[in-house]
Amino acid sequence: MKTLVKTLLFAAFVLVLAACGEGNGDKGETTEGGEGRLEELQEAGTVTIGFSNEAPYAYEENGELRGAAVDIATAVFNELGIDNVEGQLAEWGQLIPGVQAGQFDAITAGMAITPDRAENALFGEPEMVYGEGLVVEADNPHGIYSFEDIANNPDITVIVMEGSTAYDFLLESGVSEDQIDTASDIPATFAAVQAGRADATTGTEMTMRMAFESANTEDLEIVEDFQQPEDIEGVPSYGAAAFSLENEELRDAYNEALADLKADGTVQELLEANGFHPETNFPPEDVTAESVISGEDY
């Protein structure tokens, strides 16, 4: 009897060990983060990307997702064997929280790589580089040609899209915080200047230029001889796709495919097709996400 009991206990013990071993094996396969997610996306054939309406980076037109960042991300995911790219519109400030919450697999909006943002998202390698632009009331009544001009006149107010790097650039240029207002998107900033609630609005040069052309109004003016901020961290800006902190393998696979598309000229062609310069808006080879985040190129 004792022998039988011992035998049964030993068998039960073996089963427990086997179960534990199987559980650890499964855990290892599912905690590799992005690699597992990449395989899931490849099997599903669909990837969900978050974007914010900001032409010419990522925007919706006649129900279709467009923009340089969107086209580049689509080409990269196609290279990875994922043919269907679905876009979800979100406010700019909700893009990083959305990818962290799993609402998106990636975000692509020409978002500038910054050290602060890198604390909450994994950035891919730079896909584009750009400077800043400025839109003011017609005839530029306050004579604004730089951020320093705004800083030197406390009566001037400027409005920017909430969550954009322009807010920090203004502060670093000496503009007082009480001179700066924010709005949810670019059209709202333009409307504020048109209505006289602000004297100027700023953002990336291509965004300002395309929004100005779309506005098609004589009430506003784009400052053609705008002086780019000097000695300001983040100018120029390097735009890239971003991923959840848990999806490192997915980010790495994206980077590998992106590198191939840079090498064969596809990225340059897509930039040019969306109004960017294929050379001046194409990031230098020696600038990486890590060099920007570390401050070497920021």
Rank of each mutant, 00 (worst) to 15 (best):
Met1Asn: 14
Lys6Glu: 13
Phe10Ile: 15
Ala12Cys: 12
Val14Gly: 08
Val14Lys: 15
Val16Glu: 04
Ala18Arg: 07
Ala18Cys: 12
Gly23Ser: 13
Gly25Cys: 11
Glu29Ile: 12
Gly33Ala: 12
Gly33Ile: 10
Leu38Thr: 00
Leu38Ser: 13
Glu40Gln: 15
Asn53Ala: 10
Glu54Phe: 12
Glu54Met: 12
Pro56Cys: 04
Tyr57Leu: 11
Ala69Tyr: 03
Ala69Met: 09
Ile72Asp: 08
Ala75Leu: 00
Asn78Ile: 07
Gly81Asp: 07
Gly81Glu: 05
Val85Ile: 13
Glu86Tyr: 06
Ile96Met: 12
Pro97His: 01
Gln100Ser: 06
Gln103Glu: 04
Phe104Ile: 00
Ile107Phe: 00
Arg117Tyr: 06
Ala118Val: 11
Ala121Glu: 00
Leu122Ile: 05
Gly124Trp: 00
Pro126Asn: 10
Met128Thr: 10
Gly133Thr: 07
Gly133Tyr: 00
Val135Gly: 08
Asp139Arg: 14
Pro141Gly: 09
Asp149Cys: 08
Ile150Gln: 08
Ala151Asn: 10
Asn153Ala: 13
Asn153Arg: 10
Val160His: 14
Ser164Arg: 04
Tyr167Arg: 10
Val175Ala: 09
Ser176Met: 14
Gln179Val: 13
Ser184Pro: 05
Thr189His: 02
Thr189Tyr: 01
Gln194Asp: 03
Ala195Leu: 07
Gly196Val: 11
Arg197Asp: 12
Ala200Thr: 09
Thr204Lys: 08
Thr204Ile: 09
Thr207Trp: 06
Asp219Ala: 13
Leu220Ala: 15
Glu224Ser: 09
Val235Ser: 02
Ser237Lys: 06
Gly239Trp: 06
Ala241Gly: 07
Ser244Ile: 09
Arg251Asn: 03
Asn255His: 01
Ala257Pro: 05
Leu258His: 05
Ala259Val: 04
Thr266Lys: 04
Val267Lys: 04
Leu270Ser: 00
Glu272Tyr: 08
Glu272Ala: 15
Ala273Thr: 10
Pro283Gln: 08
Glu285Tyr: 01
Thr288Cys: 02
Gly295Gln: 03
